[in-house]
Structures are given as structure tokens and as C-alpha cells.
Design a protein around this nucleic acid. Structure first.
Length: 840
RNA sequence: GCGGGUGUGGCGGAAUUGGUAGACGCGCCAGCCUUAGGAGCUGGUGGGCGAAAGCUCGUGGGGGUUCAAGUCCCUCCACCCGCACCA
């Protein structure tokens, strides 16, 4: 036996261990997975595509720690696992950097990618690097353009002039989803509304399926993400009601969820963006006031218009319009509380039963006519606010032939009545808008169409793809894409008439790039098609998708839309991209989000250099449940590092003790120490397996391995001196600890396993607990009197209820509590506890 | 305002179906080892009372169901996240 006291002082040095294993994995392409089915079930584990900028941050380390643990676990459970890597490498930050420094986005992006790849390798993440790509590579975006053409052919990509969100700082339009509280999601600048001709994807065609399929196909998604998407889609049932303005012989539909309140509509309001408002005011003397109001609205930012406590404003349009239910002429207004992008851009206003209309009517002294009354006296109608039903048992008043009807039934009755005379019908309205995908920026995927004077919009033929992004020198945006200045590139011949034509100079939103990358991974090297259908269907949908909740709406909804649209085109078998979604919590520092401005950013690199990747990764998983936010504490890192060092030293010590060999379980187990160790090892196997299966409880899984290692330290001296099977039990249990820890700390685990003679741990099957060590002969019986623990007695595990009861009663301590008192009830929970209920 | 979530020692967190609250780690205390310790090993560590045995209180507050509640129900509070003039 070697001198173990020397081992105690050996230093666990990850900088020696980790590169050794990384080199093996890299040289042997250990994590490469073939597309040829081999009988094993397939599993697709994917972390959200990283945007390569600077170097990876803690959020990246967390997402790959989670995903890698899962990928390793699946592999060792006999699955064929696809676990690829790539980069979301088009985007504004690289372009803004180019504007500042003149350095081409391609160069800075590719540098960042190299740094990301280098660091990911130092983390020892088990990636199939053969499938790596960046979305900025022509070999990738060729197919982004190809998909655009497919969507264009299917009528799902179109150009229209619309009131759109414009960020004056980034000099580009933004999708609705990219506007947060009236500000640009990227730079934080206040967003303006502009009328511009833009490209859209018709995601609204899929509104119902995006909504309904969440219920049937996304059981593996967190509820909060589904709720967010549901709210974003914003389906609401109601009616479209047509109001006629006889003085100009035009009619306007409105959307309402309350057709039952139509008799209370005492005015009509249109959005300032409504194309007809100035025309309506013409010849009424209100032209100027209306024009001024419309112009003033256009100047305002989204935030100013939507301010919480903002008083209602508006201007009379100088005309009246006819309420279709009672023929009343009601005044028309323009007001910015009506949004052009929702419904029809015009509303019927019912001040008695809508708070916004109420506020407007008060200010403009318009009649407030109550038409809904509570059925019961117990409900009060407020005197200074709109009455909005809360009971669902309201009735109509002042509503002609519908007076006395219940509010709920009247909705359908009024709608049907209107429908008979062609003045309305029931409809469904959505908050979801079509996805605005064009951006007036350089560093993105060019939209593959040309504009021809004769032929109009002409898609580029597939054979001409990719339309490559030209090299330019001036990246400064000027309200148009910088591409517009690349005249050599812009000026082309029309593919149809061969006449002079111009390329589209807008590029695509980078969310387009990331809406299909998970499909490309399945067949990343295919240069004839974006993927081979059979290959794609073998892997898709992604079994476990892991990433931040910040993508709950944007990326996740777009990816779902793409999958459904491509499915409908016959290109994809799946109807949903991600079967299970896991949203990991943030890593904070001192309780706050890490940010440069706070100066509390810590880099994974510094911890990898100091403690090794295993420590950093295991710490991230140990800190708490991975779906929760977690605060980074350096002391905690030290603790995990100590634990890994303990395991590593234990491996050396156990092996150098000389007794036993290899990592197999002993033939026989005798003695307290050997039994204790075997029980603990099998308990840990059982526990870690359960924690990996049911949920991502990596924190308790690691804690279980810590408990095992603690037990081994306690028993090792005894086991070594006993020798024989006892020493073998120690080898087995130590190897089991390494094996169980492998998904979380792969390098040190591989090292320990190898030291013990077990070979390559990742080639071994996930350990299975030996049931015979899981149950013990004895249990601790908890004895309660009136629900309070009064004694703990050791009892046989197979004792009957009566035996347990007798045992409990025979306790002297218990006697002190129950003697001389009346026994009311005796409760026995087999294997656990006895509760005696006494009185007096 | 609407929707969702969280609340447990000094700290991060455990507690599978209601059945020993506080696993594991950090921190702290003590002992051992050592020339030394900011290394390693062992033990202790929720509050109060007590020399101890033990008693008692205790999972944001209040109430309830139950033999038994961190867990179920009602109610209130605090914090976090999402949406928000959506007709």
C-alpha cells in the first residue's frame, strides 16, 4: 500500500487533466453522430443558438452545462444523441462595431466564432463539431433565401406599405415583437411609427394553429411560456359590425367583443393612422384640427401614446355615422387611444361599459347611456366609471327588442340579427400581426428578389442562390440599407424580361436565420438541398430545447411558424419544432443581472482558468434548480472545487491501496463498512437516475454523489485494511461516484474512472442500482403522541402494523406520555411511523 | 389593472404521493494532523430555556381541513417576471 498521506497533499490540477481528455474527444470525434440509423433510439438535445460576440458568458455556460448533462445521460442510456453547435452570426452588434471601427462585420464575427469555439472546447462540451455552421455563411444563408422563395411562392412572404415601428438610432424597422415598452429591444431608443413599404411573413395565417397546437403538442413546455404566447396571439371572439356614414356614402366596420352593448354606442372613434380620417373631415370645417391632430400623433413615440395615466385626447371629425341597431346618428372622432394595428382601426364607443370610452365621453361631454344592468341588486353600478360585468349574469336595458335579454345570450342574438341585414357577422380577431422581416441594414441575409420596372417584384431563380452579401466599405445606415450604395451589386438584369432591374437592398431580420437552424443541423453538409427529408424526420422534432425565457415569444413563435409553414409545403414532417422546452434561469451577481454598466460581469474563462471547467460547470448545476435564477458566489465555487478534489484524491488513494482491481462490484459483501458503502453507492445510483429522469434536478443529483464520497471517506480506511471484497467494494463505489458525476464534471470523472481501471467511462452504460442494497432490514420507527415526535425506535422493516404498534407502546418514553390517558386513535404508517392520539 | 411565479437557518438550497423540516454545499465553531496552514481529515452548527436529559417555538402573516400541513383550502402581505388604451 502506497503512502496515502502523500496523496492527501497532491494537488488536483484540472489544467493537467482537462486538456488530456479534450484532446481525445477532439481527435477521436467521440461526440460525432452519424445520420445512419443503427437501431438505437434517437434523441435531439439542443441549446439555443448563441450570438457570437466577444466571448461566451455565464448564461452560455449554464445552458451548455444543462444540455451536456442531458446529452451524456441519454448516450449512456443507449441513445443516439444529436448535440450540435452553431452561431447566430448575422446581426446588428457586429455591424455597429463596424460603423465605429471600420472593421468588416465578417472579420469581427469570425474572430468571435473562433473564440466561442475555442472556449466551448475548453468546457469539454460534447458537441458533434462536424455539423457546425454560422448563419452568416453563404452555404447556410443560401437556404435561408431558398426558404424565403418557398414562402414567397406560397404567398406567405409579401410586401406592403404599413405603419411600422422605426428605430431612429439603429435606422431600421423592427417587428412588433422587438418593441419593448415602446423602445427598441436592441438599443433602448424610443420607437417611432412610420409609413413604409416592407416585407412581411404571413404568420397570422397560422394564428389559430399556433394557439391550438400549444394545447395538444406542447405538453413539454413550461406553462408561463405558453401563456405568454397565448397572450401575444391574443385571440378574441366577437363581431364585426358595419357602420354607415351617409354623408360621404362610405361604411366602416368595427370589431367588438360586446355586440350586446351596441345600443349604448353613442360615438365612433377612428385611429389617427386610419387612411380615411382626413378625407372624412373634408368640407366640415374640421379639416385643419384633424390634420393637426394626426400630425401630432405621428410625431409621438409609441411610449408617449401609450402612457399609463395619459388623459384621453381626440378631435371631432365633423360628421356623424349611423348606429346600425337603432339608426341613431352618432358623432365621429379621431383619437389616439384607438390603434390602427388592432381590429379595423375604428371602434364603436360604449362609454357606459368601457372605461376608455367612458373617460373620453366625460372629457368631450358625450352621452353615457347605460344598456347593461346587473341581474342582482347585490352588484352595484359605479357612479363614476364604466360598468363592466364581473358576474356574467347581466341583462340588457334600453336596448329595443333585446331589452331584458341576458348579456351572454344577447351577444349572439344581436350579431345574428345584424347578419340577416348584412350589417355584421361574428368574427375572431387576433392581436398577432404579420412578421415584419425586412431590415434596412447590411449585416443580414439578402432578400432574394429584384425590382423590375416592367415586371415588378421578381424572385431570384433558385439556381442563382445564394445572393451573396457584397463587401462594402461604408456601413453607416442612411435610412436605407447600406447595400443600396453598392451599385454594382444592386444593378442587375430582371430574371424574367432581362431588362434593367434593382436588387432588394433590405436584409432579413436575424430571427429568420434562427427560425430553421435546428433543421439544418440534421443535414448540415448537404449542398443540394437544405436537408434530406428522411434524415430531417429521423431527428426532428428536437426532443429537448434549452435556453432563456427571453425568447418565449420572439424566437420560439417564429420557429414554430416556420416549422408549420414548411410542413404545409411538404418539406418537414414535424408540425412543432421543439417537443420539450426547458427555460433556464439567469445567473446573477450580488442579486442583480450581470451587465457592463453595473460592472458585475464575471467571465466563465476566469473560472475555467482558475478552477477548471469541471468545477465551473458542476457549480452552476449545484447552485440550485436550473430553471431558477441563481446568484453566483465565489465561496460556493470553492466548495465544489474541494469536492472534485476530494473525489480525485480518493480515486488515487483507492487505487494505490493495492487491494482489488478494476471497478466491478465485489462478489460478496460482508461487514458493516462494506455494506454501508454498497448501500450508499446503490442509493446514489438510484437517486441520481431518478433526478435525471423525472426532472432536471442536477443540484440534488450532485448532492447525492457528495454524500457518497463523504461516506467513502469515512469507510475507506476500514475497507482497505479488511482487503479482499471489502477493498473491491470501495473500488466499485468510488468508480460509481465518478460514473454518476460524469454528466456534470466529465473530465475529472473520466480521469478517476480510468485511474481505477474502468477504462472510458463514457463508453460504459449508465449504472443500474442493485435492488438488494436499496432496502435495509431495519427502519427507524418514528413514534408520535398527538402528532408530536416523542421517540424513535429501530424496528424490523417487515414488521406488521400490530407489531409496530406494540413496539411503540412498549417504549418507556412513550409510556410517560400515554399512561393514564384515554387512547382515542392509533395510526400506523407501515415502515415509517406510529401516531398515538390520547385525551386527558 | 390582467396573467404567471416565488417566499424554508447567517447564505445557496433539500424535503417523490400530507408522515422525523433544514439533505448537500457555503459560512461559523471545535478537535486532529502539520515546521507552518488561507491545505487536508473528523465532529458540531434553526431560535429560546437548560449543566444535561429534555422541553418549547419554528417553513412570509392570519384562519381552516386532518391523527398529522412547508406540502391541501380560504384570506392577507411582500418581492420578481410577462402583458398592458387589444375595443
Amino acid at each position: 500500500m502506497a503512502d496515502t498521506s502523500e496523496i492527501q497533499h497532491l494537488k488536483y490540477d484540472p489544467s493537467q487533466i482537462e486538456p488530456k481528455w479534450q484532446q481525445i474527444w477532439r481527435d477521436e470525434k467521440t461526440w460525432h453522430v452519424s445520420n445512419k440509423p443503427d437501431g438505437r433510439p434517437s434523441s435531439y438535445v439542443l441549446e439555443m443558438l448563441p450570438y457570437p460576440s466577444g466571448e461566451p458568458h455565464m448564461g452560455h455556460m449554464k445552458v451548455y452545462s444543462v444540455g451536456d448533462a442531458l446529452a451524456h445521460y441519454r448516450r449512456r442510456n443507449g441513445m443516439r444523441v444529436l448535440h450540435p453547435m452553431g452561431y447566430d452570426s448575422f446581426g446588428l452588434p457586429a455591424e455597429n462595431f463596424a460603423i465605429k471601427t471600420g472593421r468588416p462585420p465578417r472579420e469581427s464575427t469570425e474572430d468571435a466564432i473562433a473564440e466561442f469555439r475555442r472556449q466551448f472546447e475548453t468546457w469539454g462540451v460534447s458537441i458533434d463539431w462536424d455539423r457546425e455552421f454560422g448563419t452568416h455563411q453563404p452555404t447556410y444563408y443560401r437556404w435561408t433565401q431558398w426558404i424565403f422563395l418557398k414562402l414567397f411562392e406560397a404567398g406567405l412572404a409579401y410586401q406592403k406599405e404599413a405603419a411600422v415601428n422605426w428605430c431612429p438610432n439603429d435606422q431600421t424597422v423592427l417587428a412588433n415583437e422587438q418593441v419593448v415598452d415602446g423602445h427598441c429591444e436592441r438599443c433602448g431608443h424610443a420607437v417611432e411609427i412610420k409609413q413604409l413599404k416592407q416585407w412581411f411573413f404571413k404568420i397570422t395565417d397560422y394564428a389559430d394553429r399556433l394557439l391550438n397546437d400549444m394545447g395538444s403538442e406542447l405538453e413539454g413546455w413550461p406553462q408561463n411560456v405558453k401563456t405568454m404566447q397565448k397572450n401575444w396571439i391574443g385571440r378574441s371572439e366577437g363581431a364585426e359590425v358595419i357602420f354607415s356614414c351617409h354623408s360621404i356614402d362610405t361604411s366602416y366596420p368595427v370589431f367588438t367583443t360586446r355586440p350586446d352593448t351596441l345600443f349604448g354606442a353613442t360615438f365612433f372613434v377612428m385611429s389617427p393612422e386610419h387612411p380615411d380620417v382626413t378625407r372624412i373631415a373634408e368640407g366640415t370645417g374640421q379639416e385643419e384640427a384633424v390634420r393637426d391632430y394626426v400630425n401630432a400623433s405621428a410625431q409621438k413615440t409609441k411610449e408617449e401614446r401609450g402612457a399609463d395615466d395619459k388623459e384621453k385626447t381626440g378631435v371631432y371629425l365633423g360628421r356623424t355615422i349611423t348606429n346600425p341597431v337603432n339608426g341613431e346618428e352618432i358623432p365621429m372622432y379621431v383619437a389616439d387611444y384607438v390603434l390602427m394595428e388592432y381590429g379595423t382601426g375604428a371602434i364603436m364607443a360604449v362609454p357606459a361599459h368601457d372605461q376608455r370610452d367612458y373617460e373620453f365621453a366625460k372629457k368631450f361631454e358625450i352621452e353615457i347611456r347605460q344598456v347593461i344592468a346587473p341581474a342582482s341588486d347585490e352588484v352595484e353600478v359605479p357612479a363614476d366609471a364604466a360598468y363592466v360585468s364581473s358576474t356574467g349574469s347581466d341583462v340588457l336595458i334600453n336596448s329595443g327588442e333585446f331589452t331584458g335579454e341576458s348579456s351572454v345570450e344577447a351577444k349572439a342574438k344581436v350579431t345574428n340579427w345584424l347578419k340577416e341585414s348584412g350589417r355584421g357577422e361574428s368574427t375572431v380577431n387576433y392581436k398577432l400581426r404579420d412578421w415584419l422581416i425586412s431590415r434596412q441594414r447590411y449585416w443580414g441575409c439578402p432578400i432574394p428578389v429584384v425590382h423590375c420596372e416592367k415586371c415588378g417584384i421578381v424572385p431570384v431563380p433558385e439556381a442563382a442562390l445564394p445572393i451573396e452579401l457584397p463587401e462594402i466599405s461604408d456601413y453607416l445606415p442612411k435610412g436605407k440599407s447600406p447595400l443600396a450604395a453598392a451599385t454594382d451589386w444592386v444593378e442587375v438584369h430582371c430574371p424574367e424580361c432581362k431588362g434593367p432591374a434593382e436588387r432588394e437592398t433590405d436584409t432579413m431580420d436575424t430571427f429568420v436565420d434562427s427560425s430553421w437552424y435546428f433543421m439544418r443541423y440534421t443535414d448540415a453538409k448537404n449542398d443540394r438541398e437544405p436537408w434530406h427529408r428522411a434524415v430531417l424526420n429521423e431527428w426532428m422534432p428536437v426532443d429537448n430545447y434549452i435556453g432563456g425565457v427571453e425568447h418565449a415569444i420572439l424566437h420560439l413563435m417564429y420557429a414554430r411558424f416556420f416549422t408549420k409553414a414548411l410542413h404545409d409545403l411538404g418539406l418537414v414532417g414535424a408540425t412543432e419544432p421543439f417537443k420539450n422546452l426547458f427555460t433556464q434561469g439567469m445567473i446573477t451577481r450580488d442579486g442583480a443581472k450581470m451587465s457592463k454598466s453595473r460592472g458585475n460581469v464575471i467571465s466563465p474563462r476566469s473560472y475555467v482558468e482558475r478552477y477548471g471547467a469541471d468545477t465551473a460547470r458542476a457549480y452552476i448545476l449545484f447552485i440550485g434548480p436550473p430553471d431558477q435564477d441563481a446568484d453566483w458566489a465565489d465561496e460556493g465555487v470553492e466548495g465544489v472545487h474541494r469536492f472534485l478534489a476530494r473525489l480525485w484524491r480518493l480515486g488515487l488513494e483507492v487505487d494505490s491501496a493495492g487491494a482489488g482491481s478494476g471497478v466491478d462490484a465485489p462478489a460478496t459483501v460482508a461487514g458493516d463498512s462494506a455494506n454501508a458503502v454498497m448501500r450508499k453507492a446503490n442509493w446514489a445510483i438510484d437517486k441520481v437516475t431518478a433526478d435525471m429522469e423525472g426532472r432536471f434536478a442536477f443540484n440534488t443529483a450532485i448532492a447525492a454523489v457528495m454524500e457518497l464520497v463523504n461516506e467513502l471517506y469515512k469507510q475507506k480506511d476500514a475497507l482497505v485494511s479488511e482487503g479482499g471484497d471489502s477493498a473491491q467494494a470501495l473500488r466499485f463505489a468510488t468508480a460509481a461516484a465518478a460514473s454518476l458525476l460524469f454528466p456534470f464534471a466529465p473530465h475529472v470523472s473520466a480521469e478517476v474512472y480510468e485511474v481505477l481501471g474502468g477504462g472510458r467511462v463514457w463508453e460504459t452504460e449508465w449504472p443500474k442500482a442493485d435492488e438488494s442494497f436499496l432496502k435495509s432490514d431495519e427502519i427507524t420507527l418514528v413514534v408520535q403522541v398527538n402528532g408530536k415526535v416523542r421517540d424513535k425506535i429501530s424496528a424490523a422493516a417487515d414488521a406488521t402494523q400490530d407489531e409496530l404498534l406494540d413496539l411503540a407502546k412498549s417504549s418507556e418514553k412513550i409510556a410517560g406520555y400515554v399512561d393514564g390517558k384515554e387512547m382515542i386513535k392509533e395510526i400506523v404508517v407501515p415502515g415509517k411511523l406510529v401516531n398515538l392520539v390520547v385525551k386527558g
